[in-house]
Amino acid sequence: MMYKAVIRIVMYIAGLVLQSLGLALMIVSDLGTGPWDGFYVGMTRHFGLSVGLWLIIFGVIFIILSSYLMKCRTDFLSFMTVFILGLCIDFWLQLISFQPVEAGVKVLIFWLGLFVTSFGISIYLQGEIALTPADQFMMALCDRFGLSLMASKFLGDAGALVFAVLLQGPIGLGTLIYTFLSGPLVQFFTPRMERAVITRIKK
């Protein structure tokens, strides 16, 4: 049992670290990010503080709000997810200090970020420890108002997108690509990671 728990924890942390790296790469590419990340970058541009710190601030707010909507106790493990993501994104953005100029380099960095993010999500899900605030909020809307997962995700992403545009966040063609391809990529990677985890646990 201890071995299984260690595997789950390692997958959870490694997945979040990779996800944050992918998000940082998409931000650096300046071709567009997901709606939530665009919102955090917009907040940084207008009000200061780091992207990761804004993620942590709003992550905490959404965790508390989700608990209220679902009328359940706050999942304190979700706070760990928020802090890991926020701190890691700031770390990667500090480490990746260059700003690409050539269009070809930007495209390459964006696609690398998209694949790394999707792969990271498929890994962190194997930990089965805690959802990200955005995913938790989606589930809360679904549970409280009887919406489908698709409708709940659309409402959450649409709200973030509106604020990201108002705050002049990095919203562009990459945002559309991320919106339509991140789900299928996660769906592609997830069953493969599940098989890998099951194989490791059975050894």
Rank of each mutant, 00 (worst) to 15 (best):
G174A: 06
I123Q: 00
L161G: 12
F163N: 01
A140H: 02
F137T: 03
I96F: 14
V101I: 14
M80N: 02
L173A: 14
K71F: 06
V60Q: 00
S97C: 06
L167G: 03
S78Y: 09
I121N: 01
L161R: 01
I84G: 01
L93F: 07
Q136A: 11
L87M: 04
L93I: 15
F83K: 03
I84K: 03
L161N: 11
Y178N: 11
A164S: 13
W92Q: 05
C72T: 15
G169P: 03
Y124N: 01
L85V: 12
I96E: 11
S66W: 04
M80G: 10
E128G: 08
I61P: 00
Y68N: 10
K153I: 11
G104M: 13
G172R: 03
L166C: 11
L65V: 11
M80A: 14
G86K: 04
A134K: 05
Q94C: 13
V162S: 10
A151F: 08
Y68W: 15
G172S: 09
A130W: 04
C88S: 15
P170R: 03
I84V: 13
I123F: 05
C142D: 12
T175S: 08
Y68G: 07
F154Q: 08
I64F: 08
I63K: 02
L166D: 03
D90V: 07
L181G: 02
S67E: 11
P100D: 08
D135A: 02
M80K: 04
I177S: 05
A134G: 07
G86R: 00
A158R: 10
A103P: 00
S152E: 02
T175V: 06
I129L: 15
L166M: 13
V105T: 15
G127N: 06
R73P: 00
G174N: 01
A134T: 09
L114V: 10
L149C: 06
L114T: 09
K106M: 12
A134N: 13
F83L: 13
I89L: 11
F110S: 08
L181S: 10
G156M: 07
C88K: 00
L85R: 03
Q136Y: 09
V105G: 07
L95S: 13
L112H: 11
A130C: 04
W111T: 15
F180A: 09
I96C: 01
I84A: 02
F163K: 05
V60D: 00
L87Y: 04
G146C: 10
I129W: 04
D157L: 03
L114K: 00
L93D: 06
F62N: 01
I61L: 09
V116I: 14
V82F: 05
L181M: 15
L131I: 00
A164H: 01
L166F: 11
I123V: 12
V82I: 14
F137A: 05
M150W: 09
P133Y: 00
L93A: 13
G127H: 04
L77I: 11
S118E: 05
A103N: 09
G174I: 06
Q168G: 05
G86V: 08
T179P: 03
L167W: 10
T179E: 09
E128P: 02
L141R: 05
F62W: 12
F83D: 02
L93T: 12
F180S: 03
Y124T: 02
C142W: 01
F180L: 15
